[in-house]
Structures are given as structure tokens and as C-alpha cells.
Design a protein around this nucleic acid. Sequence first.
DNA 1: TGTACATCAGTGAACGCGCGTTCACTGATGTAC
DNA 2: TGTACATCAGTGAACGCGCGTTCACTGATGTAC
Lengths: 193, 193
Amino acid sequence: MRYDAEHKARTRQRVLKEAARSLRLHGPAHVAVADVMRGAGLTHGGFYAHFASKDDLLAHAVATMFEDAQASFERLTADKPPREALRDYIASYLSPRHCTGRDAGCPIAALGSDVPRLTGATRQAFEEGTALLAQGIAGLLAQLGTPDPGEASVSVLSELVGGLVLARLAADAAQAQALLAACRTQLLKRLQL
Amino acid sequence: MRYDAEHKARTRQRVLKEAARSLRLHGPAHVAVADVMRGAGLTHGGFYAHFASKDDLLAHAVATMFEDAQASFERLTADKPPREALRDYIASYLSPRHCTGRDAGCPIAALGSDVPRLTGATRQAFEEGTALLAQGIAGLLAQLGTPDPGEASVSVLSELVGGLVLARLAADAAQAQALLAACRTQLLKRLQL
DNA sequence: TGTACATCAGTGAACGCGCGTTCACTGATGTAC
DNA sequence: TGTACATCAGTGAACGCGCGTTCACTGATGTAC
């Protein structure tokens, strides 16, 4: 077929995007190479022209997910006073939209309990991405004058992640909404936002 | 072989215990029927004398896990003033031991992000178990005179679950310890314990 | 300018392994007579 | 009391499916001459 120079890179991105979607939705064990390729408009045989193995795909998919998460953090917080930035990030993280849209959003909430079972590059991508998110929150807290912003940021991130996980396992939508609202209220109160 | 009347029930409990262990450690997708049976000292063929399917096993294993979690909550909080009870539960939940011992402990931290992918009885067992745990915490908060204990309890449970998940995905033990300590400190502070 | 060849992303059949599930069988012991 | 039969938890071989991985092939287009 002979495509132009960037064709392969574009295809790879398409596969990665679909893999990230499938990974959040179905978890590492149920991401099927053939399904991902089909989702990207290809057949499974071509997979190994782009990735060395399913593990290799997962590692890069996790990195992609954290790039998205970081971009989302920037988009919600850049060029805003820290109080407003943090309020907006919390509101977005604990929003019904984030709770319902399981094929997008925070990788930690989507895959958190699978991480201890991951190894190598996939696991490392997770560690690094998480640390970066915590740093982002710590930066906002520091600007707000919070004492020990590093400590406070992991506590805040814990409640965000835990709150979203609990909301997603609630019995019905009403309970999920109530749970998200409870965490939002408590976070705003304890951070005096 | 013809065993006594309770033999089968005992064997079933042994299989369930091993399944719960494997489930926390490896996740629903990687629990292998043959491995669980071997762990219980049996061969895989006998499995269907005890359970209708792997799904059936998982549902009962989840129920078992939450019975353990509830028992652990009772053990840590019964016959104590509410302040001490809550302090002890938080200290135990966010302890290095709980963080390291992934084959035991809280099912929500071990499987939280897998729950949205579960269905039927397994999922329901999760919902009910989680609600019961939240109620337990709410009861202690009510005794402490916390305003809106129901709201506060899900917020606390969120930070507990999120904190343990984040600690388990930390890059090394020192970081995990620091993260657990941060959540403990912040929780005690915001609950004025 | 035209022709033969090289390239390489993508195709689809095939392989092999892991694992859930089935099934004929075992053998110790309880029960009927 | 002794004997024949029934019971049933547990065994281990076998089946079949899903899925990761391999591989020979395709065919459009770039390149060498």
C-alpha cells in the first residue's frame, strides 16, 4: 500500500487511543488485541508491526491515559487563581460525567486496584503518572498557603480516587450522585475553598 | 469415600477461603478454578460438586470477603468509646500491614476498580458489603456528634480506600508509608480525633 | 519517460496454550435385608 | 451378624473456546536504471 511517512505513527496513535478506552472499560485482563485492532479499523494481524506484545501495548496505553489525565488537569486549572482551579478540578473529578464515562477519565480510578498486579513498564508508567498528578494538586495547595502541601495533596487525591471508585460501585445513579456530592462538600469544607 | 455430614460444608468453606485469597491477590479474571482447588488441597474436577460455575464461586467469595471485613470492623471497634474505635479503625486500615498483605483485607481496596465490570450476584454482594461498612463508620461518627454522619462516613471511607490503593501503587515502601501516614494525619485532623 | 523491482502496512489463516466445564470412574462407608 | 447394594465427594482425562502470537501473502507506490 505504501503510505506517506506519518501514516504509521497516526495508525499507532489510533490503536493506542482505542487500547486506552478498552483498558479503562474492561481492565488489563480483558483487553483483547483483536478487539482493539478492530476498534481502530484494522485486523489483528497487523498488530505486531506496531507493538512488540500485548504487554508493550498496555504500557504505552497507560502512558497515553496519564498524558490525557495531565492534559485534563492543565485545562481545568491553568490561568486560574489556585482556589478556583482546585474547586474546578474537584468538581470535574467528582462529577456525574466522570463517574458515568468509564471509557475516559482518571486511570487511577479506572485501574487502581489492578496496579499491584501489573509489572515492568506498565506499572512504572502508572507510578510516574500518579506522582505527577499528586504534584499538580500539591502545587495548587502550596499557592493557597496550605501547610505541608505534599501531605495534603495525597490525602485529597485519595479522597478523589476513593470517592469515584465508590460512586461507580454504588447500587444506583441516585446513590452515586449523593456519594459524589458528599465527597465534594467534605473536600471543599476541609480545604476551606 | 462417604464423609460425615459436615464434611462437604467444611470443604466448601476451605475452597471459599482460598478463592477469596486468590481473588484479592489476582483479581477476578485471574482466579483459576484449578488453582483455587489445588490451594484447598483438592483437584479441579470436584469443583462443580460445590459451585455451579466460576461466577457462582466469585459471588460467594465476595460475600465471604465482606463478612471478614465486617468482622474486622467489629473486632476493632466493639466495646470502645467512639473516638478510640474510629482512631483504631483508621490506624488499622491505613497500616503498613494492611498495605502489604494484599491477600487479606478490605475487598474494596483490593477489587474496587474491577467492580463496574462485574455483574449479577457478585456485583450485588459488593454493593451490599460496601453499604454495610459505610453504615458502620456512620454509626461511630453519629456517636461522636458529627453533623450529617452519613455524608461524612462516605467521605472518610473514600479517603481510606483511595489512600490504600495509592499506597499499594507507590513506587517503593518508603513512599507507601509516607502516603499512609499523610492520610492518617489528615483524617484524624479533619475528624478532630 | 517507461519498466522492473523493492518496500512495508496491513490481511487472514493457522497454531498453541490456558482454562472453564464435562464426564466416566473410584472407593470408603452407610443402609437394607 | 453378615452380605449386597447405594451413595456421593473427589479424581483425572478430555473437550472446546478464546486469545496472543506467527507467518506467508497482498498490493499500492516509491525508487533505480
